Simulated scan of single mutants.
Amino acid sequence: MTEAFDPDGIEQAVFVVGERHATLDEPWRAYRRARLIYVSEGVLTVRTASGRWVVPPARALWIAANTLHCLHATRPVQSYSLYVATDAAMDATDDSAAADSADSADSADSADSADSADSAAPLPAQTGALIPDTLVQALLAAAADLPHDHTPDEPARRLLQVLLDRVAGLPAAPLGLNWPGDPRARRIAEALSANPAQSLVLEELAAAAGVTARTAARLFAKETGQTFGQWRQQLRLLAALEHLGAGESVTQVALEVGYNDVSSFIAVFRDAFGDTPARYFR
């Protein structure tokens, strides 16, 4: 796939594209389509105006339609992008496919099909990280081999519909961080993002940003849904995922994200992600 690739220029309502990059610095883009990015190898960092996500292997990020976003990876990364037209959220088939289905099925089967579509779970409405199961992973890989320059045949349509049905039910993953919009809080966030290990307390960070600590604490709670301490800890954990994905040792990563006690880092990481740093990428 070239840099000029535009998913909105594809007529097919639902399709999957596989990509592999030695490094990645995809510019800010927004599509009319929703986009699911599944990472099979490497670590992908995704930014939007209001959030940051770090996506390790076997995890995915759903990006709502018309959301400006950019992708970044410092090491090799392999991913699959599922693109979904907003009017295809409940059905991977187009009008011609529906007509073909009607011609080949009796009225009872058509009614059953309609009932099934009506009861299908909706696709996510908001951008967020997800945990794909092994079936979704296999369906994405299979769908990436399908052509997307013409109307899919019946087996392809069924595969894509099953994929959409499965994506709709995937559980969320704690891999994101809400980004403050207020310029004062954003200055603090950017300073910490540039150096997660820095030990400055909120009073010092707030003073450098031209705001009182009390106001800064209020802004973080209002705009991110977390206390400043909770937000800072999540920022460090996401930075840790990036470093671990680059092959760095647990001890080195703990120090780089601001933990002098490696045991404390391991405990916090396990509480957040359900496994120790040493086992997470195995």
Score class of each variant (00 low, 15 high):
106 D>W: 00
33 R>F: 00
265 F>Q: 03
114 A>L: 09
32 R>L: 05
12 Q>F: 01
275 D>T: 07
269 F>H: 02
94 D>Y: 04
124 P>H: 04
136 V>T: 15
125 A>T: 08
62 W>S: 03
78 Q>K: 15
3 E>D: 08
239 A>W: 08
226 Q>H: 11
274 G>T: 05
68 L>D: 09
78 Q>I: 04
244 L>Y: 11
268 V>I: 12
223 E>Y: 00
185 A>L: 01
190 E>Y: 05
248 E>S: 12
23 T>L: 03
235 L>S: 07
42 G>D: 04
121 A>P: 06
214 R>N: 15
68 L>N: 05
180 P>A: 01
100 D>A: 11
29 R>Q: 12
259 Y>V: 03
14 V>I: 04
100 D>R: 14
51 G>L: 00
236 R>L: 04
181 G>K: 04
274 G>N: 06
233 Q>S: 15
190 E>Q: 14
15 F>H: 10
179 W>Y: 02
275 D>Q: 08
177 L>D: 02
111 A>K: 09
231 W>T: 05
152 P>W: 06
234 Q>N: 13
58 A>G: 13
206 A>Q: 10
39 V>W: 13
54 V>P: 09
129 A>T: 06
127 T>V: 01
102 A>L: 07
178 N>F: 00
159 L>D: 07
15 F>L: 01
128 G>R: 15
278 A>R: 15
33 R>E: 01
88 A>N: 06
175 L>M: 12
61 L>H: 07
77 V>M: 04
94 D>V: 07
254 A>G: 03
3 E>I: 11
197 A>I: 05
119 S>M: 09
101 S>R: 10
13 A>Y: 07
144 A>E: 00
210 G>W: 03
163 L>H: 00
281 F>C: 10
160 L>C: 09
84 V>N: 02
43 V>K: 05
223 E>M: 01
165 D>P: 02
182 D>P: 05
146 L>I: 11
25 D>R: 11
175 L>G: 03
141 A>P: 05
159 L>C: 08
45 T>P: 02
119 S>I: 05
138 A>V: 02
244 L>A: 10
94 D>T: 04
259 Y>E: 06
21 H>V: 04
172 A>H: 10
266 I>N: 14
277 P>C: 00
103 D>L: 14
16 V>I: 11
220 F>S: 02
211 V>S: 14
131 I>G: 14
84 V>C: 00
271 D>R: 14
110 S>V: 09
280 Y>L: 14
139 L>M: 05
143 A>C: 11
83 Y>C: 01
267 A>K: 14
129 A>D: 03
45 T>R: 13
199 S>V: 13
215 T>C: 11
46 V>N: 03
158 R>F: 09
122 P>H: 09
237 L>H: 12
219 L>N: 02
153 D>C: 06
245 G>I: 11
24 L>K: 08
136 V>S: 09
113 S>A: 09
208 A>L: 13
160 L>K: 10
14 V>H: 07
159 L>P: 12
251 T>F: 07
164 L>W: 05
224 T>Y: 00
44 L>D: 06
60 A>F: 07
45 T>L: 13
247 G>P: 15
116 S>A: 13
108 A>D: 12
28 W>H: 12
140 L>D: 08
107 S>E: 13
207 A>Q: 13
